[in-house]
């Protein structure tokens, strides 16, 4: 399988804390790749560096062989990485449909004057954006909530809406930050089906998740971060038995394993 994303010795420091230390990992195309680790291991930091929210201190990230314009979120989005958030960050006062329409900005040329003058091609593009947004809402199964404000949606639907919004950017890599957090067993099961469906449709998925059962059952390969360092990367069966991983999770103080 071809390599989609390659992180090369990525480092990030916050003051005296080395949040990421020489993290290198390889995600193959159409893979479901899990990133796990104890709280504070640097998973979300890695996500933020990857999506341009944080600038990195060292290292490089290649997406399909080309270096990512790190530190510039809208260019990263254009390059083909989209993400969701651990604590849902929708545009609460906009409708579900509008939320997804925002995601279409990546693939369309927006112009203030064009929007005002409403040329024929502008109107057609706008109609196409609306149609595509409706399709995506349908795809994640919340088409019936299209005109409700995002903050009025049920929790599980908000997670779905975030995924639809991310899909609107036509990503090559979809990065999901703890998508199952706060979900009950039924919702988690449905999410699992959704993620498998995304992969079947050709997408590559990067998954941060605390639900170890979900990760181990869903992911093709898993990387484990601990104190900002990658301590393992392999198929779930191997990672589960890795001594370093077991130590990181259960470690010297069993009572502290908050995961």
């Amino acid at each position: 399988m071809s390599v989609l994303l390659e992180a090369l010795s990525v480092g990030k420091r916050f003051g005296g804390v080395q949040a990421l230390k020489d993290v290198s990992l390889t995600i193959r195309a159409q893979e479901i790749y899990g990133l796990i680790g104890p709280n504070g291991a640097g998973k979300t930091t890695f996500f933020n560096v990857l999506t341009g929210l944080y600038t990195r201190d060292s290292g490089d990230v290649l997406l399909a062989g080309a270096p990512l314009p790190l530190g510039s979120p809208h260019l990263v989005a254009r390059a083909g990485i989209a993400r969701t958030f651990q604590n849902i960050r929708l545009f609460g006062n906009m409708t579900a449909l509008e939320n997804v329409m925002v995601g279409r900005h990546v693939r369309t040329r927006i112009g203030m004057f064009g929007a005002i003058l409403r040329t024929r091609s502008q109107r057609e593009e706008e109609a196409a954006i609306r149609r595509r947004a409706e399709e995506l809402l349908h795809y994640v199964g919340i088409a019936h909530r299209a005109n409700d404000l995002a903050r009025h949606l049920a929790y599980g639907d908000q997670r779905r809406l975030e995924i639809a919004r991310a899909l609107a950017t036509e990503p090559k890599l979809l990065a999901l930050d703890e998508p199952a957090a706060g979900m009950n067993a039924t919702e988690t099961g449905a999410l699992r089906q959704l993620i498998l469906g995304l992969r079947a449709d050709g997408l590559t998925v990067l998954l941060i998740e605390h639900d170890v059962k979900l990760v181990m059952g869903l992911c093709d390969r898993v990387a484990v971060l601990d104190y900002g360092e990658k301590i393992a990367e392999d198929v779930p069966e191997v990672v589960q038995k890795d001594a370093k991983v077991i130590e990181a999770y259960l470690g010297g103080n069993v009572g502290d394993s908050s995961t």
Binding site: G52, L53, R78, A82, F91, N93, V102, V106, R165
Partner: peptide, 15 residues
């Protein structure tokens, strides 16, 4: 409006 609500997330969506 998206930027007014959350300028960083809007940027992640390509705005």
């Amino acid at each position: 409006r998206a930027s007014a609500e959350d300028v960083r997330v809007a940027a992640l969506m390509g705005v």
